[in-house]
Structures are given as structure tokens and as C-alpha cells.
């Protein structure tokens, strides 16, 4: 939710001098820690409890997911480069890096779509067993967050193309970045816990 104009109250006075929207995003991220934490609890509690296969060790493709993980990590790099460009009002570079972030996000999502269809082909559906249910719910929730981020970034990109994004909007880009990096950070945890600690 982006409140574009500063509120009347904000224009007048801000006790800490920190932007309202940035505080909102950090508090939201705090709340998201509990959301992903609860999903992670579900995944870990049910690990090894499926009564029928396929089981994780038969399906998880580590080299493939390493590549998509790398893609998502690099998208975070694009994001910080985008913010740095917008802050110095270099909108040509800013546009480029914002678009690159979104595209890498899309590539990650494509990888996830491939992985999901592959699993379904191998016989693991949402309702097959506890592994399927908890895996698809956890990684699916993360994927949905990535998708929201991609739409958000593309919106910024379109605004930039129309000349409606400048260094005056650096705060908006920074907040988008906070969201994007958090989604990346969640994946760092999921990558290790789901794929490497089978």
C-alpha cells in the first residue's frame, strides 16, 4: 500500500524524522517473520511424517534450484543498483535496473512453475501427502510474495517510462526494495531448510 502524498500530520511534524511509509514497511516485515515462521513450523513438524511417497529426497533437484536461488540473489543486487541510480536521479540506469529486478523475479517464478509442474508429473500433488501439502503451501506463499513484488516493480517501471518517477520518489523505490530484499531473505532460509537439510 503506497500512500503517495505525505499526510497532513507528517508534513507538519515527525517525531523521529523517519519516513512513515518506511516504518510501516519494516513493521510489516516484522509481522511477515511470524507468517513465514508459522509456515516453516508446519513444514518442519511434518517433515518425515508423510505416510506415502514421493518423498523429498526423491524429488528435490538441487542443481536446478541453486540456479534459481542465484537468480533471486542477483535480483536483489539489481534492486540496490536501481535505488542507487534513482537516488542520484539517473533515471536511465534506474529504469534499467528496476526492469532487470522484475525480469529476474519473473525468471525465478518461471523456475518455480517448472519445478511445480515437474513434481506434479512425478506424482507429487498438493493432496498426495504431507510433504506435498506443506511444500507447495510454503514455497507457494513465497512465490506469491515474489509475484506481488514483480507487479509492484513493473508498476514503478511503467511510471518511470512515463517520466513519473524521479529522485523525489527515491523513498518509494527504497520501500519497494525493502519488500523485495525481504522476500529474497526468506528464500535464503527456505533454500537451506527445504533443499539442503533434507
Amino acid at each position: 500500500m503506497t500512500e503517495h502524498a505525505a499526510t497532513a500530520a507528517e508534513q507538519h511534524h515527525s517525531y523521529t524524522g523517519l519516513p512513515n511509509r518506511k516504518l510501516l514497511m519494516w513493521a510489516f516485515i516484522g509481522s511477515e517473520c511470524m507468517l513465514f515462521g508459522s509456515l516453516l513450523i508446519t513444514y518442519l513438524v511434518y517433515r518425515g511424517r508423510s505416510v506415502v511417497g514421493p518423498y523429498p529426497e526423491e524429488l528435490l533437484n538441487i542443481p536446478f534450484i541453486t540456479v534459481t536461488t542465484f537468480i533471486l540473489l542477483m535480483s536483489s543486487l539489481m534492486m540496490v543498483l536501481a535505488l542507487a541510480a534513482v537516488q542520484r536521479n539517473d533515471m536511465r540506469q534506474g529504469k534499467l535496473w528496476i526492469l532487470m529486478t522484475a525480469l529476474l523475479g519473473l525468471a525465478f517464478l518461471a523456475g518455480q512453475a517448472y519445478e511445480f509442474t515437474h513434481f506434479v508429473h512425478e506424482g507429487l500433488g498438493l493432496t498426495t501427502n504431507l510433504f506435498g501439502a506443506s511444500f507447495f503451501l510454503l514455497t507457494g506463499t513465497h512465490g506469491a510474495h515474489v509475484a506481488v513484488g514483480v507487479v509492484w516493480l513493473l508498476t514503478l517501471f511503467v511510471m518511470a517510462m512515463r517520466g513519473r518517477l524521479s529522485s523525489a520518489d527515491a523513498e518509494t523505490v527504497e520501500i519497494t526494495g525493502l519488500y523485495w530484499h525481504f522476500v529474497d531473505v526468506v528464500w535464503i532460509v527456505l533454500f537451506t531448510v527445504i533443499y539442503l537439510l533434507v
Binding site: 500530520a9 507528517e10 511534524h13 515527525s14 517525531y15 523521529t16 523517519l18 512513515n20 516504518l23 510501516l24 513493521a27 510489516f28 509481522s31
Partner: peptide, 10 residues
């Protein structure tokens, strides 16, 4: 979330 920001900043 709204009240957290309000109380910190306003």
C-alpha cells in the same frame, strides 16, 4: 501497523 507508525512518529 498504522498505530505502531503513528505512535513512533506523530
Amino acid at each position: 501497523l498504522n498505530f505502531i507508525v503513528t505512535i513512533i512518529n506523530l
